[in-house]
Write a protein that binds this DNA or RNA. Structure first.
Lengths: 211, 211
DNA sequence: GAGTAAATACATATTTTTATGTATGTCCCA
DNA sequence: TGGGACATACATAAAAATATGTATTTACTC
């Protein structure tokens, strides 16, 4: 275990690559290679044989989400440490489901990064405090939206916001037209509104749907 | 002019600071100091006396926009080179009005950055090719949104998005109900859609209205 | 085990929206 | 000066949405 951790970096910003390299190089970590997008990275993995891959989310050609998915499928032994450019609440949830090993804010300093890389290399998970807060916010937001509307109502809200009409919603959900009528009327009553446009605005403001 | 360019860095990502420093240090450039937010940066300027300030847009406490504004007012001699984390189309316009000296994508490599810093230090403006494209897109988007809809149609769109119905819109605009019908039908035909919900989503996405 | 909430289903009446026409006066530009 | 785009106006029919009822089954809670 005295060996260096073999670290691979994937980021489309040369600056970031330089920054991370100069922060972590030496100190028990060896930068075995860098890539500037997902597909480039995937090709290099079998050659570089990294222990840990540190990857950005937003990248051209193949983004970090897709890269993480494929890495998990093809090379499950490489630990995945995702670098967040913050604000990526939505993608965070997806990534957690894919099963990454850690999440790290780009605002982290050298010590934190070092700690994170070494942790995931040893098989531990690593989530910074910012991230823990984000995860909490996700579940809070979920609970909040869950308490107002039933799952069925949320289904109808989402389809309504896509411009589907009653008939189409009924088809998609495999329920009757008249049931959709009832559900939608219930939603209107709950919110004290009386048309779909106001519902759409409400849903967007409260992040029930994503544009 | 054989002197080093005195460069100051402002970014809340330690990574970025390290990256830029290791890319540009030496090579005719001296990093005289770094700050991680706008107010910190403002305090340091009189002490560090930089020729060029390279600044990020998104930062806590005081963001790059506000920093640029104050720098222009307090220290007009310091050249401002803004680092874009791309996608900041809206802020770009504001910054151009403030009168910055250059705009640089974070995806730039060492040579481009070096070129940019030296250019603005000499009093030239610097805008990368990405940025030139962005500026074009700004004016295109503006023209597009201006030319698609007539003023009357825009009125109707805005009221529709507030959840008003035909009758109410007619009242507000002081025109007949049937005229509103015609206008709205014209809007639908133009966009190839057939209900108000899709219109709302379109309007929000294209910033025809504000939530 | 009773009470409550949710999801489902159906009915009816009214209002609103949408699709498609036609038509007229104005204003601008080629 | 003639064509085109726009704002306006009106008409009709069909489709969809909304308001208000009732009612049944399931599932969870106290």
């Amino acid at each position: 275990m005295g060996d260096n951790v073999r670290l691979m970096l994937v980021d489309d910003h040369p600056l970031m690559l330089m920054g991370i390299a100069s922060m972590l190089s030496g100190k028990g970590i060896e930068i075995v290679g860098t890539a500037s997008n997902g597909s480039e990275a995937l090709e290099m993995v079998p050659v570089l044989k990294p222990d840990v891959m540190m990857l950005d989310i937003v990248m051209p050609v193949m983004d970090g989400i897709e890269l993480a998915r494929r890495m998990r499928a093809l090379y499950p032994d490489v630990a995945l440490l995702v670098l967040s450019s913050d604000s990526s609440l939505a993608s965070l949830e997806v990534l957690l489901n894919i099963g990454i090993d850690g999440f790290l804010s780009k605002t982290s300093d050298a010590l934190v990064m070092l700690d994170a890389v070494k942790s995931v290399a040893l098989g531990y998970e690593y989530y910074g405090t910012d991230i823990a807060r984000l995860i909490e916010r996700i579940s809070l937001a979920k609970k909040a939206s869950e308490s107002i509307f039933t799952p069925r109502e949320l289904d109808v809200i989402r389809f309504s916001c896509m411009g589907l009409q009653y008939k189409e919603i009924a088809e998609r959900l495999g329920i009757r037209y008249l049931t959709v009528v009832t559900i939608k009327n219930n939603i209107f009553r709950k919110l004290g509104i009386n048309n779909t446009v106001e519902l759409v605005v409400y849903a967007i403001k409260n992040e029930l749907i994503t544009l």
